[in-house]
Amino acid sequence: MKIAVTYEQGQIFQHFGHTEQFKIYEVEDGAVVSAEVVDTMGSGHGALAGFLQAQGVNTLICGGIGGGAQMALAQAGIALYGGVQGSADEAVAALLAGTLSFNPDVHCDHHDHAHGHGDHACGEHGCGHHH
């Protein structure tokens, strides 16, 4: 199994569509056997699902993610654990232990306008909790 995490400086990056790096974990028998950080080479929203599929990824842990990207991941057969914050390594360990806290209804629907501040994280203003 391969698990990808949206990645920035050890933490889960909160905007899937703007992800510049994923940390990809190779898992065998319930344990991580290797991990590497890979650059998306500037792939945007639509191309990221294909990028992950090409890497052999079957599970994604991320922060905020829009509906179109969710559909692309579903079509690629990639399981989604969204709305997650904190350490990438700890999130993978929690997933493998069956204790990962995630939001099955995560949604980030403000991709069409500029945020105006570079340190924005979806989790800070309730994204992922819209109904």
Results as ranks from 00 to 15, higher is better:
Thr59Phe: 02
Asp112Leu: 14
Ala114Asn: 14
Gly46Lys: 15
Val5Trp: 07
Pro104Tyr: 02
Gly98Lys: 04
Val92Asp: 05
His117Met: 11
Val37Phe: 02
Asn58Val: 02
Asp39Cys: 05
His125Cys: 10
Ala93Ser: 13
Ala47Lys: 14
Gly10Phe: 10
Ala79Asn: 05
His131Val: 09
Met1His: 05
Ala88Glu: 09
Gly83His: 08
Val33Trp: 08
Ile12Phe: 10
Asp29Ala: 13
Thr40Glu: 07
His125Met: 10
Lys23Cys: 08
Ala93Lys: 14
Gly64Tyr: 12
His115Gly: 12
Gln75Ser: 00
His45Pro: 14
His15Leu: 12
Ala4Asp: 04
Glu36Gln: 09
Ala49His: 02
Glu8Gly: 00
His113Leu: 14
His131Lys: 06
Gln11Lys: 11
His117Gly: 13
Gly68Trp: 15
Ala88Lys: 04
Gly63Leu: 12
Tyr7Ala: 02
Leu100Val: 00
Gln55Pro: 00
Thr19Gln: 07
His130Leu: 11
Gly17Glu: 13
Val84Ser: 03
Gly46Met: 15
Ala54Met: 01
Gly44Asn: 13
Gln53Met: 06
Ala91Ile: 03
His130Ser: 06
Asp39Ala: 09
Ile78Ala: 04
Glu20Ile: 06
Leu96Lys: 03
Gln85Val: 08
His113Ile: 13
Thr99Gln: 11
Cys62Phe: 07
Phe13Asn: 07
Cys127Asn: 13
Ala69Tyr: 10
Ala94Trp: 06
Ser101Gln: 13
Met71Ala: 15
Asp119Cys: 02
Cys122Arg: 10
His111Ile: 08
Glu26Pro: 01
Ile65Val: 14
Leu100Glu: 08
Ala49Glu: 02
Asp89Trp: 04
Thr6Leu: 04
Val92Phe: 05
Cys108Asn: 12
Ala114Ile: 09
Gln21Cys: 03
Gly10His: 13
Phe51Gln: 01
Gly68Glu: 15
Val106Ser: 04
Ala69Asn: 08
Ile12His: 07
Ala97Leu: 09
Ala35Pro: 05
Glu26Cys: 00
Glu124Cys: 02
Glu90Asn: 05
Phe22Pro: 03
Leu100Met: 03
Cys62Trp: 09
Leu100Gly: 03
Ala91His: 05
Val106Glu: 12
Cys108Asp: 15
Phe102Asp: 08
Gly10Lys: 12
Leu96Tyr: 08
Asp89Asn: 04
Ile61Val: 09
Leu100Pro: 06
His110Glu: 14
Gly82Asn: 05
Ala54Asp: 05
His131Trp: 12
Ile65Tyr: 12
Ala94Asn: 09
Asp39Leu: 03
Met1Thr: 02
Glu20Thr: 13
Ala49Arg: 00
His107Thr: 14
Ala54Tyr: 01
Cys127Gly: 07
His45Ala: 15
Gly44Tyr: 15
Val106Met: 12
Ala69Met: 14
Ile3Val: 10
Asp29Glu: 13
Ala88Leu: 06
Gly83Asn: 06
Gln14Arg: 00
His117Arg: 14
Phe51Leu: 07
Gly66Gln: 11
Pro104Thr: 01
Cys127His: 15
Gln11Cys: 02
Gly82Ser: 11
Gly98Ser: 07
Ala35Phe: 00
Asp29Pro: 01
Tyr81Met: 00
Val38Phe: 05
Ala94Thr: 04
Tyr81Asn: 01
